[in-house]
Simulated scan of single mutants.
Amino acid sequence: MRDAQKGKRGVSLYSRWINRPLGRAFAAAAATFGIGPNAVTVVSALVTIAGVVVVAAAPITVVAGVAAAALFVLGFALDAADGQVARLTGASSRAGEWLDHVVDAGKMVAVHAAVLVGFDGADLHGGVWLLAPLAYSLVSVVLFAGLTLHSLLMPRDAAPGTPSTARAVLLLPADYGVLAVAFVLWGAPQLFIVVYAALLLATTVITALLCRKWFRTLTAAG
């Protein structure tokens, strides 16, 4: 399993210490039982959809919040597992990578759309609150597209940077896993919206800085 891991550079502490180890356990189980990476991707999508349904349709309670957080965390861990299964079993494919990215893109929009719907049930009808999930969805898609395209367009022979603990800490607010955990507060809407707005603000700043950096590195690469 050690050889099936991605590099640590540009990864937050949550993904490095929590999500990838969880994904490693699921990947080992999937490989043991002969479950392929695409099947793991589909299961990840279904688990995440279940979390979306809880947020959008279930009564807003502490139990619902814990359930949503658990489903989102599990879905994210399975998302980390599919690539590890592919690398471990030699089953990597262009179609599998495409499927993984499509599911990730859908997840970025669906989670915030669920929050938007859920706010109605929480009596957060004011326009400013409704703008938050719309803005978060936009920022998340830009961050995801920027990261994906930067990885695809950078020359293959570009020297990888050295992992930085400080960078891994600073990237925490933009990590989907941190947002997933934040849903434990869903049962207390007034508290959740404060944390949600803070993560949105931090993610916006991080996205702007990363996009600036990615543009510069691609410009330098020609």
Rank of each mutant, 00 (worst) to 15 (best):
F119S: 01
E97D: 03
R94C: 03
V102L: 03
R94L: 15
D120K: 14
M108Q: 15
V115Q: 05
A91D: 14
H112I: 02
E97H: 05
S92A: 14
K107R: 14
V109M: 11
A91T: 13
D104R: 14
V117S: 05
A105G: 11
A110Q: 00
S93L: 06
F119Q: 04
L116C: 03
G96L: 10
D120H: 10
V115N: 06
A113F: 11
V111S: 06
V115I: 09
G90H: 13
L116V: 05
G90A: 08
H101I: 07
D100M: 00
A113L: 12
D120I: 11
V102I: 14
D104Q: 10
S92H: 15
A114Q: 00
L99T: 06
A95D: 04
D104T: 06
V103L: 04
A113P: 08
G96T: 09
A114H: 00
M108T: 05
D100I: 01
V115Y: 04
V109E: 04
D120Y: 09
V117E: 02
G90Q: 12
V102W: 03
A105Y: 05
V103C: 03
K107P: 01
A114L: 05
V111H: 03
A110N: 02
V103I: 07
A113D: 01
F119N: 11
R94H: 12
A113K: 06
H112S: 12
V103H: 01
H112L: 05
M108L: 14
D100A: 04
A110R: 04
R94Y: 14
F119Y: 03
S93A: 12
V103E: 05
V109A: 13
D120C: 08
G96R: 11
M108R: 07
W98D: 14
V117H: 05
G90Y: 15
A105S: 14
G96A: 12
K107V: 08
F119H: 05
G96D: 15
V117D: 02
D120E: 01
E97A: 11
K107H: 13
G106V: 00
L116W: 07
V103G: 02
V102G: 00
A91C: 13
H112E: 12
A110V: 03
G106N: 05
V117Q: 06
G96P: 15
S93P: 09
A105D: 04
R94S: 13
V111C: 08
R94M: 08
G96E: 15
A114F: 01
M108G: 12
V102Y: 11
A91H: 10
V109D: 09
A95E: 10
R94N: 06
A110M: 02
L99A: 09
H101T: 12
D100Y: 02
G106H: 01
G96M: 15
A95R: 10
D104L: 08
L99Q: 13
G96Q: 14
G118Q: 01
V111D: 01
A110K: 00
D120Q: 08
H101Q: 13
A110L: 08
K107L: 10
D100E: 01
L116M: 04
G106M: 07
V103D: 00
V115F: 00
A91Y: 13
S92G: 15
F119I: 10
S93H: 10
W98F: 15
G106Y: 06
A91W: 07
G96S: 10
V117T: 07
A110P: 02
A114C: 00
R94T: 13
